[in-house]
Design a binder for these strands. Sequence first.
DNA 1: CATGAATGAGGCTTCATTCAT
DNA 2: GATGAATGAAGCCTCATTCAT
Lengths: 212, 212, 212, 212
Amino acid sequence: MAAPAERSRENPRRELLNVAIDCFAKYGYAATSIDRIAKAAGVTKGALYYHFKDKEELLLESVKHRLGQFERRVVQEVAPITDPAESIRTLGRICHQHATKSNHRRLIVTLMVEALDTYPALERVFRDMMRRFRAFVAQLIEQGKQRGDFRSDVDSQLAAGMFAGAVMGLEIQYYQDPASFDLRRALEESCEQFLGWLGRQAPRARWKQRRN
Amino acid sequence: MAAPAERSRENPRRELLNVAIDCFAKYGYAATSIDRIAKAAGVTKGALYYHFKDKEELLLESVKHRLGQFERRVVQEVAPITDPAESIRTLGRICHQHATKSNHRRLIVTLMVEALDTYPALERVFRDMMRRFRAFVAQLIEQGKQRGDFRSDVDSQLAAGMFAGAVMGLEIQYYQDPASFDLRRALEESCEQFLGWLGRQAPRARWKQRRN
Amino acid sequence: MAAPAERSRENPRRELLNVAIDCFAKYGYAATSIDRIAKAAGVTKGALYYHFKDKEELLLESVKHRLGQFERRVVQEVAPITDPAESIRTLGRICHQHATKSNHRRLIVTLMVEALDTYPALERVFRDMMRRFRAFVAQLIEQGKQRGDFRSDVDSQLAAGMFAGAVMGLEIQYYQDPASFDLRRALEESCEQFLGWLGRQAPRARWKQRRN
Amino acid sequence: MAAPAERSRENPRRELLNVAIDCFAKYGYAATSIDRIAKAAGVTKGALYYHFKDKEELLLESVKHRLGQFERRVVQEVAPITDPAESIRTLGRICHQHATKSNHRRLIVTLMVEALDTYPALERVFRDMMRRFRAFVAQLIEQGKQRGDFRSDVDSQLAAGMFAGAVMGLEIQYYQDPASFDLRRALEESCEQFLGWLGRQAPRARWKQRRN
DNA sequence: CATGAATGAGGCTTCATTCAT
DNA sequence: GATGAATGAAGCCTCATTCAT
């Protein structure tokens, strides 16, 4: 029998985790009380403490779960693609889907910002995640450079950060204003903008250094 | 004689506000206790309550203050510029300066994410701010379109969101990893990428619509 | 075996409520801190907040409880009586018992005065209670008038207020000075005075209207 | 030039006291913060502390002031009257005036109830006041007995308590519900009821002693 | 497994009071 | 005389956590 992967009555731990993820994604860590999760899951706080050592474990498991899902999906879908530009586009599409589907990306973005200077353990998790993500994108760009698809004078690391930034910044605007912010188009165009920039020789004016 | 604008012994309210801004910018709202601010300012909690009605007033004043500074600066510096492309670059530079100088932008980005679905009053403030910001950028783009500098087939609103997103996403990576993330270069390149995209006819592959 | 109705270990909520009632009756609302109740009950403040939403809920429940007890008792004991005069006397006796037994009436009188212009929710509860009480007494008087026991020229509403006032005023003197104020005799005589006044034609000098 | 006795700009202490009296009368002691008085008087807290040692001094002075006014007025108006019945009626009228005029009596009744078991110094003041008041009324009744106007078998002390109680109980109902409780008529009738009872031989059924 | 009950720490807020100016 | 500023104690309330059953 194929059980549904999530919300299964079979695995209460998994189910509680899903509820926790929703709460953390929506309200962040501090504003999510254990009681809020328990009520949302229809159990008592005691039940949560039966399955999880403490709030931090719930949090870390939530993050690990979503992060794992996201990264596994990225690897699975991008790996078979040979065209780096198409890989970038696929990455954008996956982000879009995870951003709009059941708070998959929102958990990550929300907690990442909240963790800054506040939850060291979490901060490390996210810093590592971002480094992994940038490294992954940088490597796609390197591929493109070797294939001659992309300009050879771009800094892959820097470009990877620009791509990651664009994605996150758009997501946040979408979480803030889902009714009026068209995340799909914005991500799509940003990918194209990014690829266009990667693909051609661009003479650029440098900023003049100002005071400060 | 140039008096220090802030931290003046003369105006305790202003001084407390500055301390509060630093705390909120670094730790967010929930993780900043009144006592933390008080200790950082070298006073007792009571002093804070003498000057501010409650924690929310402190927060709102902090945000209003930094937001005002940022928006005033943007208007002042960008208004006299006639070349829209140069306006965009200036905007980028201002963001960089406010992001790296005493938590000016960090307050905004951090609280904006934290507020999502959690602090309605704050959420509104930031939603309005983002709309204003996008409208401002969109209008620069419209100018560029009229001058023939930019492509006429871009959706200015969408493009404005893309620009705003890029800036925020880069900032967050910088706050998370200031030692290894070069915000200045990233912002500079992102502006150029953006302007490059605005400036030329770009044939784009559309995403295939997937389920979801 | 007759189990003690209250203070049962079985129902902690009820037990806490009883302690709260005693405190409120004795010290009023403002001078009763949550901690005072908790200490009197031998628990910590947290326990109170487990059972009651906040201090106001504790208060309202206390009042509702005592008010219910009093009003139920009045109805039960007075309803079967056919002689209105005897009903009035019974009312007096019940008030005496509830005034001298475990702060039953004191809670009501104390909080009613404290609530004036200060705790709107409470004020309403007590205003309604007084109106109910006066209506009840007025209806007894109407009965007496119809039976020909009482003078037909008295305003039943007014008389009911006079009765209610007499009872409360005596109670307060008793709470203030229990050692030297004989509440039983005072209530008894006041009932007789009231019934005497109700029972006979009394020519009365009117107050001359003064300025003010 | 004849200055108004109260609210005079001439005597700030007196003026502050008047404001304090109004606040205490309306909200009681605990619910009247120093700041509330200061704001109502249009000064800062510091000014209050310049004129009064602490909150308790403000309170005690307030009470002493109103109590003095009331008792002086009673003595002045009642002393010249030779007919005890008329004295009682005059007493009722004075109470009515002081109850309806600028919180004169309300201060007393409100604080007296609040003080119970809570503010020992205040409690003593009011216990003494009530004893004085009852003694005063008892002495009127004794006069009436000696003149043959009143029954000789009443306990003057008890009767005095009954009178005092009636007055206070009516006042409270009036403070609670000024729009629908006719204090003047209620007091008037209560006086007549009282005098009627004092004036004639009343055979009375005694309450049967119940358990408790 | 899970609940009901409770704890204790910490956070927000009020308020009487003090004091330098 | 009076103010603005500040303190410190105490009160209300939330919440992560524990534990007996």
